Simulated scan of single mutants.
Amino acid sequence: MIKQLVSALALCLATALPGVAQTGIGTPVTAEILPGWVKADGTRIAAIKFKLAPGWKTYWRAPGDAGIPPQFDWSRSDNLRGVGITWPAPKVFREGGVRTIGYKDELVLPITLAPRQTGKPMRLTATLDFGVCSDICVPQQLEVSALLDSTDRTPTPAIAAALAARAYSGSEAGVRSATCSLRPTANGLTIETRLDMPPAGRRELVVIEPGQPGLWAGEMNSKRSGGTLTATGDLSAMSGGAVAIDRSAITITVLGDNRAIEIRGCTPG
């Protein structure tokens, strides 16, 4: 599984820049900061808005085996203590036998900003490393910066809509139980999740995020039987060593035709 990931990323990186130069498409994505509003506790709800050229898509935090996971560097910001990201529910793309997870056309990514000094202006500077794909994959690095000094408390419609588009929590979606069984393999572990929950649509894709540095989860094979959704896949250590799992750190996301559900943690199965 790790070899497949490295090969996919190497292919994207090897073909990206020459492909752009040859096709003359220009920049396939732009980004800007939406300043948002200030909450009563002093935190700010803002967003980064990505605008993609027609036919291009970018990736969710867990992009699939052929995708490029996004990374954000906020370290050059001023008066910023912490950042929380709320991901809108992504779409599943199935093209040429490859399954990736992400967004097309436009992505408004809400961020919750905690200042070091409440009531003082904030300079938000972010370096964004991510991938976009059409017929080719192009790694991108963009820098966005804005002075956030307004005290407006009126929610921005575009950001509010993106917040409303997040995945349902397990309790909101009626998840009754979530268990994880683990079995050692030559390269790590096989994980099987069993979710007692109502259907999220005709097609349901289960995504596992281990929640621990150095661990990689491969694609899951999902099937439903009545009220139970079962998914099986592999967990591997990037270093190739032994794998230890904290079940409470695992995030299980179900992407269905009708809705997305995010479940935090699982119990032994």
Rank of each mutant, 00 (worst) to 15 (best):
residue 202 R to L: 11
residue 95 E to F: 03
residue 220 M to L: 14
residue 246 D to E: 14
residue 208 I to M: 08
residue 223 K to F: 09
residue 259 R to M: 13
residue 265 G to W: 12
residue 31 A to P: 02
residue 25 I to W: 01
residue 131 G to W: 01
residue 213 P to V: 06
residue 98 V to F: 06
residue 268 P to L: 03
residue 49 K to D: 09
residue 69 P to T: 12
residue 138 V to Y: 04
residue 255 L to C: 12
residue 70 P to H: 05
residue 224 R to H: 07
residue 200 A to E: 07
residue 233 G to Y: 00
residue 123 R to Q: 14
residue 153 R to T: 15
residue 154 T to P: 01
residue 84 G to A: 14
residue 168 Y to T: 07
residue 49 K to I: 00
residue 38 V to T: 02
residue 165 A to Q: 05
residue 125 T to W: 03
residue 86 T to I: 11
residue 168 Y to W: 14
residue 144 V to A: 04
residue 109 L to R: 01
residue 249 A to P: 08
residue 2 I to L: 15
residue 109 L to A: 10
residue 246 D to V: 12
residue 202 R to G: 08
residue 191 I to G: 07
residue 109 L to D: 11
residue 211 G to A: 09
residue 105 D to E: 14
residue 23 T to H: 06
residue 204 E to I: 10
residue 105 D to K: 00
residue 44 R to G: 00
residue 96 G to F: 04
residue 2 I to W: 03
residue 93 F to V: 14
residue 266 C to V: 08
residue 167 A to R: 02
residue 114 A to K: 12
residue 109 L to G: 05
residue 252 I to N: 01
residue 156 T to F: 04
residue 175 V to M: 09
residue 160 A to K: 10
residue 216 W to T: 13
residue 30 T to E: 07
residue 139 P to W: 12
residue 120 K to A: 15
residue 164 A to D: 12
residue 88 P to K: 08
